[in-house]
């Protein structure tokens, strides 16, 4: 094994020279995770908002379940999605296993509870504040949902970023359903795992640096949004 300094120098070189393989992996990772987060938002936000404003028997139990699902073990999700998509599984005819779509499905399963739970929390707090005023203005519980979602938009973007952070850094589920196939389903996290085991630390380090950069950028955006919300008096807490 070459020295760490040499590996690091090669990693920097890979990034700066725009290594095609490296950036193809980065772009696939971003495409899979961004799509997964958008789909999760379409599913999770209405569910979270509905749980925030609706009152029905079993609501509390559903909230507890949803909060618990936030901590789903990725490998278990990977296994379940694998069973669904495998040739003998109920969705086997779609032949999605070992494709980026399978990885998106797995990430959607992981991220949707996070977005739904955070949306429920944010919208419920806002709903309490708005409840009497909206009723006074003749807005029903159901029609208050879009109003609340729009007015909680800054906090909800934070929820989306939290979901994206989870998706982009995930390895267990996507390696099971994606198979880590070169040029097809190889994303940053799975490549880091593979290349490290092969001793190719330069590529692993380069991808690790980009992954950390994305994580820092996401957190910076969350901080900027929170700051803006505070400045505008929009903080929900």
């Amino acid at each position: 094994m070459q020295g760490f300094a040499e590996e690091f120098r090669m990693a920097v070189s890979l990034i700066l020279q725009g290594d095609a393989e490296l950036w193809a992996i980065v772009m696939l990772s971003l495409r899979v995770s961004v799509l997964a987060v958008l789909i999760s938002a379409l599913i999770g936000m209405p569910i979270g908002a509905a749980l925030a404003v609706a009152r029905f028997p079993g609501r509390r139990a559903l909230i507890i379940l949803m909060n618990a699902l936030m901590g789903l073990p990725p490998v278990v999700v990977g296994l379940l999605v694998y069973l669904m998509l495998s040739r003998s599984g109920p969705l086997g005819v779609l032949e999605l296993l070992y494709t980026p779509i399978a990885m998106i499905i797995a990430q959607v399963v992981l991220v949707t509870p996070i977005i739904a739970a955070l949306t429920r929390q944010v919208v419920e707090m806002l709903a309490e504040e708005y409840a009497e005023q909206l009723r006074s203005l003749g807005v029903s519980r159901l029609s208050s949902v879009p109003v609340l979602l729009w007015d909680a938009r800054l906090a909800l973007v934070t929820a989306l970023l939290a979901g994206f952070g989870r998706a982009i850094a995930e390895v267990g589920a996507v390696i099971i359903v994606g198979g880590n196939i070169n040029h097809v389903t190889r994303v940053m996290t799975t490549t880091i795992a593979l290349e490290t085991s092969k001793g190719n630390l330069a590529l692993a380090l380069a991808l690790g640096a980009i992954l950390i950069g994305i994580a820092v950028a996401v957190n910076a955006m969350v901080s900027a949004l929170t700051l803006r919300a505070e400045q505008e008096g929009l903080r929900h807490a």
């Binding site: 504040e129 003749g138 909680a152």
Partner: peptide, 28 residues
């Protein structure tokens, strides 16, 4: 109720612009 309106001790304003707060009820 729709023929009545209420203003609360702590004004509850939508997280929008001043004009958008008025537009919200006019749109309805």
């Amino acid at each position: 109720m729709a023929r009545q309106a209420m203003v609360f001790q702590q004004p509850v304003l939508l997280r929008r612009s001043v004009a958008a707060n008025l537009d919200f009820v006019l749109k309805r």
